[in-house]
């Protein structure tokens, strides 16, 4: 895989097609898990990364074998297998995190991000690209989930990563309504920043293009004069 392609995939997964803040996928765990604290968000993110990477890997490997008509049941079967594995692993070695995440761990099976990437990317792209896509999509999801978790934990519980910082807390942010508000604010801020940066880059690219064009024109006129 070329470096440029790798960069494209990395940027798509984390920023341009950030599943939580740009594609607004996987909203159920986002709203629920961010209220459980930043540690739970990291745990959920890690589980999603694992499932995304391995399901993309297998689906990409089998993309020419799986018939189109049964692709969805096949994808679900593969995803469910990896979710079960991650769930078993967490229960065995991270019992507290497993207990905290509860049903949301099993619900990764129906997380739109995973099925979405399987359907739109892994089933059409080579293995390495698919693995990278899974990894960076997962990282993008984890980052946004953890940042939201941090904000809600600080505001709603006065704590950070389970450590109590102060007694001041706004209980609203730990509740359901607070989850929606935080999510909305994150989407708004992220998209405002993203659009601003994109506009700037476009301007810069346009300026560069104009400059190159002018340079080319100047060079052409110089050549013509010389001739």
């Amino acid at each position: 895989m070329k470096l440029k392609r790798f960069k494209e995939i990395a940027l798509d997964g984390t920023v341009r097609q950030n599943p939580t803040l740009r594609l607004v996928l996987g909203t159920c765990p986002t709203l629920a898990v961010t209220g459980m604290g930043a540690i739970s968000c990291l745990g959920m993110g890690a589980a999603v990364i694992f499932v995304l990477v391995f399901s993309n890997l297998i689906i990409s490997l089998l993309r020419n074998v799986i018939p189109d008509k049964v692709r969805i049941p096949c994808f679900i079967m593969i995803i469910a297998t990896f979710v079960t594995i991650v769930s078993m692993f967490m229960e065995a070695y991270m019992e507290k995190l497993f207990a905290t995440l509860g049903i949301f761990l099993d619900l990764i099976v129906v997380n739109c991000i995973i099925l979405g990437r399987a359907e739109s990317f892994a089933s059409h792209n080579p293995v390495l690209d698919s693995v990278c896509d899974g990894l960076f999509m997962g990282i993008g999801f984890t980052l946004s989930l953890t940042l939201m978790g941090i904000v809600r934990e600080i505001l709603g519980k006065g704590a950070l990563f389970g450590v109590q910082l102060w007694n001041f807390k706004i209980a609203f942010f730990a509740e359901k309504a607070g989850a929606f508000l935080t999510y909305a604010l994150f989407i708004a801020i992220f998209n405002v920043c993203y659009n601003a940066v994109e506009r700037k880059l476009k301007h810069k690219a346009a300026r560069n293009a104009v400059a190159i064009e002018r340079e080319a024109e100047a060079a052409a006129s110089t050549e013509a004069k010389e001739a």
């Binding site: 799986i66 018939p67 096949c74 593969i78 079960t84 594995i85 078993m88």
Partner: peptide, 28 residues
């Protein structure tokens, strides 16, 4: 095509079950 689809689905199921059985051995 239908037979192939069913066969692939069944194969994937069997492999997944086998994988889970192995994991179960270690993680149950």
């Amino acid at each position: 095509a239908a037979v192939k689809a069913v066969a692939v689905l069944v194969c994937i199921c069997v492999v997944c079950v086998a994988l889970l059985a192995v994991c179960n051995e270690f993680l149950y």
